[in-house]
Design a protein around this nucleic acid. Structure first.
Lengths: 217, 217
DNA sequence: CGCGCTTTGTGAACACGTGCACAATTGCCT
DNA sequence: AGGCAATTGTGCACGTGTTCACAAAGCGCG
């Protein structure tokens, strides 16, 4: 269930605000989803709330962390030290959320040696060493499209079993390797689709034609 | 349909390789989906292939572009000139795919004036002017979480009707405004979920337990 | 000119995720 | 101690998206 991470983030925020208990309805509103869905998701966890009261925030955080495998850090290695790779390495959000950057590698010698976000860029030939020594199982592909499949192959050979792919290509990987794709242009194209439907000829925009994630004000 | 952009990218690639005609099965394999799904998606476009032959690539590209509203460029404005905002602005992929960066704004005067990817960072107070003069309808939120809602509000007030949100928060927007969220940490957490399920106690990893997007090699 | 091969387009079964509604359970207040 | 209000957990119906399977339709070859 792809909603658990969202719940988790909200619950952690609530915990920081010293909220000890939250109802499914409250959590649903914060997450922008249906209350019944929240309950079903949480009950699927086997997690227990207390009827008449709600869910204990700290306990839920623990349970979701456990379910998501976030009881320990997952170091990630970034392949590709171009614009995107640099941004990802420099973006502090990964480390904070339990995904420290174990290394950044690139195929170009010219990029090797520079330091990004406290991590020195190493050559892609060092990938197996990094993956094994740091026990990395998640690789991030931040290369140009033409190099993405090679990057993925190298990650798999080095022992990574999960790949987060930012390149706009469909990666072929062996069975047992998970791939998730983030294609920024696709997101924009979906938005443009709704934009275009909104006002076909520049006429009065009408209808509640949102992307399915818009919330009323 | 969120798959059209994927088809489009593949078809454009095929066109560059001088492929003139493609079958639903071929396209399906390249896109990593079911052939029947491809046919249904394309027939939903009202687009016509020729039975016994396949689809004419150039015509399909045109049709999908039309459906997605990609017959003209959609300038975007980026709010937040931090790590992510800089990367997005510097990332050439946007402009190439029809989404030129019309401007980058930040609330901090210290960031104003610097040039990123050929675009000068301007103050967020200039947002309405940029949006109106460049006819921007898509805004990108690349701020820290705490500033994201304010950024979204400003975008909406300035006249944007679509928002691509990189901040890990649920944005509240008026009806008629589309929001799409890209949360990098969530993607990693989903991967960690599968990682954790893969080898509960470090035992022999088994099964075809992929994320639903893995392709066999 | 007709036959067979290939591929599209689509009707129908199926699976899945969603949302409602309600019984069960808990805590609180009297 | 008992009743009431609040909230969870879940059976059920519904809508959506997916997949199969097959008829319709075009192309090439004999």
């Amino acid at each position: 269930m792809a909603r658990l991470p969202v719940y988790l983030r909200i619950l952690i925020e609530q915990a920081e605000d010293e909220v000890e208990c939250i109802s499914s309805e409250g959590l649903a509103e914060l997450a922008g989803v249906n209350a019944a869905k929240v309950r079903k998701d949480l009950s699927y966890l086997g997690s227990y709330g207390t009827r008449g009261v709600g869910y204990e925030v700290a306990f839920l955080v623990y349970q979701i962390r456990r379910e998501l495998g976030l009881t320990h850090d997952w170091p990630v290695v970034i392949v590709g030290a171009g614009n995107l790779g640099q941004a990802l390495a420099g973006y502090g959000g990964f480390g904070e959320r339990g995904f420290p950057v174990a290394g950044v590698v690139d195929i170009e010698q010219a990029k090797v040696g520079s330091v990004i976000g406290g991590v020195r860029v190493r050559h892609i030939d060092d990938l197996p060493a990094i993956v094994q020594s740091r026990r990395v199982s998640i690789g991030v592909v931040a290369t140009p499209p033409s190099a993405a499949q090679d990057a993925a192959d190298r990650l798999v050979r080095a022992g990574c079993t999960s790949i987060l792919n930012f390149a706009p290509v469909v990666l072929a990987v062996p069975n047992g390797v998970s791939v998730r794709k983030v294609d920024l242009a696709v997101e924009l194209q979906i938005l443009s689709y709704y934009e275009q439907r909104r006002a076909p000829v520049g006429l009065h925009a009408v209808g509640s034609n949102d992307s399915g994630r818009g919330a009323s004000a």
